[in-house]
C-alpha cells in the first residue's frame, strides 16, 4: 500500500502535469518579460532592467486611477449582483408553471460573451438608430451617465449568475427550518433574515469571490463600448494593461502591471477562499 501523501500526489498529478506543461513556460516567460525593457517591435531583443517596470507602474498615476475605478466598479457591481440575484432567487423559489422556460431565459445573458453583449449595447445606445437612447432621450454614454451605464450593463449580464448560485442555495435549506420559524411567530422578513441568510452564507461568499474576481478583470464589454473613455473615465486595470501592451507596445511594463495585480490580490483572495471552504465545510 502506498502512502497517503504519494496517493494525493498521484491524484493531483494529471492536473499538475497539465498546468506545469502548459503554463510553466508562459509564466516564466511572463516574469522574465516583466524584468526587461521589451516592446512589441523589440520582442527579439529584450534588455534586462530589473524592477524598473514595476516601479514605473507603481508610480504611474494612470495606474492608480485605473485601480481606483476598477475597485469601485467591482465592489458596486458585485454587491448589486448579489442583491438582485438574491431577489430573483427568492422570486423564483416557488411553484410557477413554466418556470423552466423562464429560468432558461433568465440565464441567457451569461451565455453570450461580454464583447458581443457590448456590441449589442452599442447598437441599443446608438443615438440615431438605437431604441434605448431614442426612447429615453438620454445620452447614456455621455460623461454624466457613462459609468452608471456600464455598471448597469455588467449587472444585467451577471446577476443571472448570482441568481443561479443563490437559487441553488435556497434549495438546500430544509423546509422544517421555516416551519420552526413560523411556529415561533417570525414574519417573512424575519425568517429571511434569521433562517435564509445564515444558512446560505457559504454561497454568498462564493458569489462575492467568483463575481468579484471577474468584475475586477472586466475588459471586453467596456472596451467595446467606451474604449476606456471619455478621457480615462472608464479605464479599468485590464484596459490600462491592454493599452500598455498593444498600443504603447510596452510588453514588459504591461506584464509587470498584471503580475503586480496578482500579488496585490492574492492575499485577500486566499483569505476569502479559506473562509468560503470553512463555511461550506460547516
Amino acid at each position: 500500500m502506498i502512502s497517503r501523501t504519494k496517493e494525493k500526489l498521484l491524484l493531483l498529478s494529471p492536473i499538475l502535469i497539465f498546468f506545469f506543461g502548459l503554463m510553466i513556460f508562459p509564466t516564466i516567460y511572463g516574469w522574465y518579460l516583466s524584468l526587461n525593457r521589451v516592446f512589441l517591435h523589440t520582442f527579439e531583443f529584450p534588455v534586462f532592467i530589473g524592477l524598473t517596470n514595476f516601479m514605473s507602474v507603481i508610480r504611474d498615476p494612470r495606474f492608480h486611477s485605473a485601480l481606483a475605478f476598477t475597485a469601485r466598479f467591482a465592489i458596486i457591481t458585485t454587491i448589486a449582483q448579489l442583491a438582485i440575484g438574491m431577489g430573483l432567487a427568492v422570486l423564483f423559489n416557488r411553484d410557477i408553471p413554466g418556470k423552466r422556460i423562464f429560468t432558461s431565459l433568465l440565464l441567457l445573458p451569461m451565455m453570450v460573451s461580454p464583447a458581443l453583449i457590448g456590441v449589442m449595447y452599442r447598437l441599443l445606445l446608438n443615438e440615431f438608430i438605437g431604441p434605448l437612447s431614442y426612447y429615453t432621450g438620454l445620452n447614456l454614454l455621455g460623461m454624466r451617465y457613462v459609468v452608471g451605464t456600464i455598471m448597469v450593463i455588467d449587472i444585467l449580464q451577471w446577476s443571472p449568475f448570482a441568481f443561479l448560485i443563490l437559487y441553488a442555495a435556497l434549495q438546500t435549506i430544509p423546509k422544517s427550518y421555516y416551519e420552526a420559524a413560523s411556529i415561533e411567530g417570525a414574519s417573512r422578513w424575519q425568517s429571511f433574515l434569521y433562517v435564509t441568510l445564515p444558512s446560505i452564507r457559504a454561497f454568498i461568499i462564493m458569489v462575492l469571490v467568483l463575481r468579484g474576481i471577474d468584475a475586477f478583470k472586466t475588459f471586453d464589454m467596456i472596451n467595446v463600448l467606451t474604449a476606456g473613455g471619455p478621457g480615462t473615465a472608464t479605464t479599468t486595470v485590464s484596459i490600462y494593461i491592454y493599452k500598455m501592451a498593444f498600443q504603447t507596445g510596452n510588453i514588459g511594463r504591461a506584464t509587470a502591471a498584471s503580475l503586480l495585480l496578482l500579488i496585490i490580490f492574492s492575499v485577500p483572495l486566499a483569505f476569502a477562499l479559506k473562509r468560503a471552504r470553512k463555511e461550506e465545510a460547516e
Partner: peptide, 13 residues
Amino acid sequence: LATAISEVTALTI
C-alpha cells in the same frame, strides 16, 4: 491625442 480629444469633447476639461 484620442484620450485628450474625448475628454475635451465631453467638456470635462
